[in-house]
Write a protein that binds this DNA or RNA. Structure first.
Lengths: 260, 260
DNA sequence: CTGACTTTGTGCATCGGTTCACAAAGGCGG
DNA sequence: CCGCCTTTGTGAACCGATGCACAAAGTCAG
């Protein structure tokens, strides 16, 4: 193939086919995984990869992987596979990672700090424009090369840095307010870590990351497995907490707040 | 009505229909959201809720919500709606939250600390059995009422506390090793925060929470929106979304939430 | 007791996504 | 140059999820 590892531009290639139809949502969700695996391979010096290999690394079916990639264009070589570097470039471009994405993190508690320190943030075109918090005791301190600014500056920061992505890492109680301010300031992509359903106008894209929900989904499957294993007979052989005394009606104390 | 707010047992009710067929995966993913909304309503003293109200609160279609609930059984009253407390109980039971789920968190960095301090953890049957780390400087310190123990004690902790759920909050480099040890020790449900694809044997359930992937998905949609906007009219001069300050009554707004 | 009204539960059409299986494409050895 | 072998790209069947629309079921006023 001998395709230049540093792709010239990629926009005039006859094999491109992305601009026409939009990518399936399920494909979009998997591309970042492929990208990660590909990057790892590139670091290890792998030049060419087959769909089987890449699929194995990403933990998916190889037919699915090929179909996903085929949505971007026809970048493979039959009998050989895909050029790793070139594929990295094409996937990055499809995802919009060839440009810079300034983001703002609101909430500098443990979670906000973890996010600010997260290395993978900066590696792919994402740049933290600011880290905000409403606690006067935290404002002014430095976290990961960033001086924490006050939440009241949301509008300034968004406007000044042309922030397109807002990350909400506040307690649930203040999340909707922060979200509203972000939206009004012009942010159209929001990543929400607070445990509540955010209300946003059409045109704003919200994705949520919710520990509690993930745990509950895990619990469901664990329960099912456990029930199946026990052959549907007495599942209370476990260390169940209830039995008899229902502690459910009182379970009203639910999702109070994520520590800020 | 005339249904006791304090559910007696729930397992001998002729309206139950859960045990037979298994819940659709999409339904399982939404039940925790319903549960959260319901809990909030219960706290505010709401006694009865219609599918429309609950669906609005959860950000889903009401038909979908009714179909989801119908998989659990027939717990609504036509012309009235659902009894909030009873529904909370039934959803909790379906998810397996009526029993205790000891979990172990591996990795006591910023993320692990954030998780340990997360209030929503303990409120729903999830209990942190231990917080582990391999850094001698951290081992022995106290975080959220827990003394950090050394990662080498994974097997002991899992066995002693009958841990079923493992949360991996380590750097990517050590995640697979930790995962392997958890699996060998008997953990069958894993929540992975490390940015890599974990390799596990069949029978082990892994869910991943990946900041980087979420950001990249957001970037894709942001790029697409931006491309569409520039495709029709070139007004990249002002980056503010045209509607700007026209909305603030966040109450009645369409939302484009996503699923997980 | 009856009839109007509300809301559930679901049949059905549709849609997006997954998987299989295979023809077409291309490299490579001889 | 040819024919074999590998691997891609995709047509088509299948599967689960979604959303509409409505009959059934129940409440409630009078």
């Amino acid at each position: 193939m001998s395709r230049d590892s540093v792709p010239h531009k990629g926009t005039d290639d006859p094999r491109d086919r992305p601009a026409d139809d939009r990518l399936p949502e399920a494909t979009v969700a998997r591309l970042p995984v492929y990208l990660r695996v590909l990057t790892g391979m590139a670091e290890r010096g792998v030049v060419t990869v087959s769909s089987d290999q890449l699929a194995a690394g990403a933990g998916v079916n190889s037919a699915k992987l090929r179909k996903d990639l085929s949505h971007l264009g026809s970048y493979g070589v039959r009998g050989v596979g895909y050029d790793v570097d070139y594929l990295i470039y094409q996937v990055s471009r499809a995802l919009g990672l060839t440009q810079d994405w300034p983001a703002v993190i609101v909430g500098a508690g443990n979670l906000g700090r973890a996010l600010a320190n997260y290395g993978g943030f900066a590696t792919r075109g994402f740049r933290i424009a600011a880290l905000l918090d409403s606690d006067p005791a935290i404002v002014g301190t430095r976290i990961a090369h960033l001086e924490v600014r006050h939440s009241d500056e949301i509008e300034d920061v968004v406007a000044q840095h042309k922030v397109a992505i807002g990350v909400i890492a506040t307690p649930a109680s203040s999340a909707q307010g922060v979200c509203d301010r972000l939206v009004v300031a012009g942010v159209t992509s929001i990543l929400n870590f607070a445990p509540l359903v955010l209300n946003v106008p059409a045109g704003v894209d919200v994705r949520k990351v919710d520990l509690s929900i993930e745990l509950q989904i895990l619990a469901f499957h664990a329960q099912r497995r456990s029930a199946e294993r026990n052959g549907r007979v007495r599942q209370d052989a476990l260390h169940t907490v209830d039995e008899g005394a229902t502690r459910l009606p009182a379970a009203a104390a639910a999702n109070s707040a994520a520590e800020a």
